[in-house]
Simulated scan of single mutants.
Amino acid sequence: MRKVLLVLVILLAVGLVAADRLGVRVAQNEIGKQVAAQYQLSQRPDVTIHGIPFLTQAVGGDYDKIDVAIGDWTEQGVTVHGVKIEMRGVNAPLSQVTSGNAESVTARTATASAVLPYSVIKERAPKEVKGIAPKGDDLQVELTGAVLGFPVTGTAIVKVKPTAKGISITPVSVGSNGSSQIPLALVQRQLTWTVPVANLPVGSRITAIQPTPEGLRVAATADNVRLNDLPNA
């Protein structure tokens, strides 16, 4: 009898684990479908629901952390790569999730991050900018050409800053290779530009920028997010 009970307990445990994992997949697929529909995405994003057991979270409708990997994202003709959204304190009633209704799905905070490639930044740069690379918290650009009639060949350090219109890029120092030193004010007048990506898909403005070897890693955080209220792409 003890052996029979032991086998039954093991089978029950295996069944619960299987049900738990199946429930995770169903919920992840449904949330992915909702995000794809909300943002008119061509492909369903990858969704990861953290926390074990899942069924306990599902019954209560409260999840500690849900990650959504969207991939590429385009705003005002500018495409960023590797867009990820980390949602914390998610409330998603099971009945809403399984029915494909996002009306009651909310998150205490939603943080989106992405990489803006240097090639995309250079496309928007003045023609005198020939190359862009990270330099600590700033960027270093290679310059060749003329600024207001003054020849310029060398490098400049530029600062990046999030604004309401996008990411502003402004020279803060200029070095030259044998040419006359040009006043910084003149350089800033001609070689300041903006990449028009101000928001990420949590309905919030970009607030953090960090140069990396691949490009600028940008991030935006929104509080008390309703999935159904997020703007379409």
Rank of each mutant, 00 (worst) to 15 (best):
V4H: 03
I10A: 12
I10K: 02
G15A: 12
G15Q: 07
L16P: 02
G23W: 06
V26T: 11
N29K: 12
G32H: 03
K33E: 12
Q34G: 00
Y39M: 15
V47Y: 13
P53G: 13
Q57T: 05
D62C: 04
K65F: 09
K65E: 14
A69W: 03
A69Q: 14
G71D: 12
D72C: 01
W73Y: 13
G77Y: 06
H81F: 05
G82T: 01
G89F: 07
N91D: 14
N91H: 15
P93I: 10
G100Q: 10
E103H: 13
S104Y: 12
A114R: 05
S119A: 08
I121Q: 12
K122A: 10
P126Q: 05
P126F: 04
K135Y: 06
G136V: 04
L139E: 01
F150D: 02
P151T: 00
T153V: 09
K161I: 10
K165M: 08
V172R: 04
V172P: 00
S176K: 14
S176W: 06
L191M: 14
P196L: 09
S204H: 02
R205I: 11
I206M: 09
I209R: 05
Q210S: 09
V218E: 01
V218C: 07
A222Y: 04
N228F: 11
L230T: 05
